[in-house]
């Protein structure tokens, strides 16, 4: 499911990103195939999301998060 629809608190595997505008940037920051991320916070009124892999936290806009496919683990 898209990252934008992931519920806060449950970890998920990064599968792919279909937006060329953000994919290289995300890859730099470690959002790559096989990495696990958790949504920490969703800002109100469709504001940006904050996600974490344990060692770093990244904020992405909800509209960009729609292009990121994740798979829930466990």
């Amino acid at each position: 499911m898209p990252l934008s629809e992931l519920a806060p608190g449950s970890p998920a595997l990064f599968l792919s990103c279909s937006s060329q505008a953000i994919y290289p940037k995300l890859a730099d920051m470690g959002l790559i195939e096989g990495s696990t991320w958790t949504v920490i916070q969703k800002m109100p009124f469709h504001g940006p999301l904050v996600i974490s892999n344990g060692s770093s936290r990244i904020s992405i806009r909800e509209e960009d998060a729609r292009f990121i496919l994740m798979q829930k683990t466990a």
Binding site: A21, I22, K25, L26, M29, P48, V50, S56, R57, I58, S59, I60, R61, E63, D64
Partner: peptide, 10 residues
Amino acid sequence: GRSTFVIELP
């Protein structure tokens, strides 16, 4: 196109 916003929260 739309602008993007990807930042790290240190």
